[in-house]
């Protein structure tokens, strides 16, 4: 016989959303458990600061809890949550110092040397050199494998802008992480 917690954890999103809308706390906890990784990773790559990323990820779930009654199609919970996450990040980016994005990148920043276990840190550091919109597009493209059309839809940016952001971000990351990229090419080549 299947126990109730097992039934809930195996339940589809739409059912859990339906229960959460009625105020079911455990159903919402399951939704958080199920979708937290994507949100936390997105925020971590966008912020480059673990504490801030966790705070923003929590904000995303709080907003989703407060707005879940307005979700018209429970089966589209994941897409809706992604949209909340991206909007939360964009709101946070807008509230910060407007000069933060005045220059797209610091030209004095040198390419990074590969270090053991430092890929994540160096990647975060390199991503921080990009302006907020460029970084968001690059993260959605590389981390989540979203197409340009999907990124444009979810961020509300024009498709041409998304393409240009991804192209510019890619070029800058290639430059900053050249040592890692060359290493990977050598490993693949040998």
């Amino acid at each position: 016989m299947v126990s109730k917690p097992d039934q809930i954890s195996a339940a589809p999103d739409a059912l859990l959303v339906g229960l959460a809308r009625t105020g079911d706390r455990s159903a919402f906890a399951h939704l958080v458990r199920r979708h937290q990784l994507w949100i936390r990773n997105l925020m971590r790559r966008c912020c480059g600061d673990n504490t801030l990323a966790e705070d923003l990820a929590q904000q995303v779930f709080m907003k989703s809890w407060q707005q879940i009654a307005h979700l018209q199609r429970p089966s589209r919970f994941q897409g809706w949550l992604k949209r909340i996450a991206i909007n939360t990040w964009l709101e946070h980016a807008r509230k910060r110092d407007p000069l933060h994005n005045a220059s797209d990148h610091d030209e004095t920043e040198k390419p990074r040397e590969p270090a053991d276990g430092g890929i994540a840190l160096d990647l975060d550091q390199a991503l921080r050199q990009l302006s907020d919109p460029v970084r968001l597009c690059v993260v959605l493209s590389y981390h989540d494998g979203m197409t340009h059309v999907e990124i444009a839809a979810v961020t509300g940016l024009p498709l041409g802008t998304v393409k240009s952001h991804v192209r510019r971000g890619t070029a800058r990351l290639q430059e900053l992480l050249s040592a890692y990229i060359e290493d990977a090419s050598e490993v693949n080549g040998s």
Partner: peptide, 29 residues
């Protein structure tokens, strides 16, 4: 996706991800 560098894609994958943690769920709840 379009215009993606496979080497960067591999780098993102190697950089890893945050592990699933019950503490986060507890904090949200």
């Amino acid at each position: 996706t379009q215009d993606q560098d496979p080497r960067l894609q591999a780098l993102f994958a190697r950089a890893g991800a945050i592990n699933k943690g019950e503490a986060f769920t507890d904090q949200v709840m």
